[in-house]
Design a protein around this nucleic acid. Structure first.
Lengths: 186, 186
DNA sequence: TCGCACATGTAACGCGTTACATGATTAC
DNA sequence: GTAATCATGTAACGCGTTACATGTGCGA
């Protein structure tokens, strides 16, 4: 019996909200946790089988609809395992930020290249803020009375706060790079 | 001939600053890029061999000092490859934030558990800000006249900006959780 | 003499993505 | 009819960490 990994716990968490199919889990993750967590197909389906073997979830085939659908449900065992994991200190994640790495070596190339990278990042970040703001609105409309609401809202706020900080940094960095450009010309 | 990956380019970038040994590269990364990029031993040494095979770096064994030391130097080929990579759009990295994932499923456990996680995160973030502020001071003292200076400073500012945003979020989230606690009691 | 920092590597394992593979249903 | 979405999976590969392995030089 191998231990459960983070993918497993992410799935267990999703199933603690409601019974779902593999496909549902993907959709839900893309809608809600994509900003800080996602799983690929290649992880998801094997993990569901492993979780079933561990008896932390059970699978019921839904033949009522025309298409076959495997609905997974968390077991009492599964909920206990999830709660235990939730109480453990979260590991601090190591970040790999390619934009920063390229910027760090920026002296090797023209400032225009760094400028372009940052402007692209600025645009992406702005899109991100819009999208998170939209998600937040939907959350208020659809789940305001849910016990999940405050927790889900906090996670969205985290995304927004960080994105706003990135935006500010982009603006400052763009100014810095323009100064470098002026320095080169003079 | 396999393509170079990001680890390879990170090393090339380091060697574009100065010739270094594998050990030096690790030290330098830990001092300067740890906040957004790091490599483990298990990656570094094999990568150095591969880069040598690709002839983008060359190795000179330094026997002058008592201890053997392999000093790697970037070649003209290597610099060209690095510049080409620097000009390519950086891929946006997928984040996996375990703290956010646990918070997202917070309804399954007591608010105290989420509170503890966030308070720990707040503390770590504060330490991070102090450390980055210190690094920034050192940078000004030691490299202010270097052409690398503005680029390196920007990367530090990024770390600081983001950490400050995290700190603010922590304070808000702690207030939110305290409200939840009061709600449960009443 | 003991422990730390210097210095270089290997092996095993698990994680995670990507591409592949299949097929039904529904909306246009 | 045909494209998109629903729905489930597999195989291969590369990435990255961890643990292991070895040995020197220097300062307390």
């Amino acid at each position: 019996m191998k231990k459960l990994n983070k993918t497993h716990y992410a799935i267990l968490g999703m199933l603690s909200i409601a019974p779902m199919s593999g496909y549902d889990i993907r959709q839900t993750m893309q809608k809600s946790t994509a900003n800080f967590w996602s799983e690929s197909d290649g992880q998801l389906y094997p993990a569901l089988r492993q979780l079933t073997t561990h008896k932390v979830i059970i699978c019921k085939v839904d033949s009522s609809s025309a298409r076959e659908k495997k609905i997974y449900q968390i077991t009492a065992n599964g909920l206990t395992a999830l709660k235990k994991w939730l109480a453990e200190k979260p590991e601090t994640f190591s970040v790999r930020n390619e934009l920063m790495l390229k910027l760090f070596f920026g002296t090797n190339v023209s400032p225009d290249i760094s400028l372009e990278h940052i402007q692209a990042h600025r645009y992406q970040t702005k899109m991100m803020i819009d999208q998170l703001t939209e998600t937040k609105k939907q959350l208020v409309n659809e789940h305001e009375s849910s016990p999940h609401f405050p927790y889900w809202q906090m996670s969205i706020h985290y995304g927004i706060k960080l994105a706003e900080a990135k935006l500010q940094w982009c603006d400052e960095a763009i100014q810095d790079l323009l100064k470098i450009k002026r320095g080169i010309k003079s």
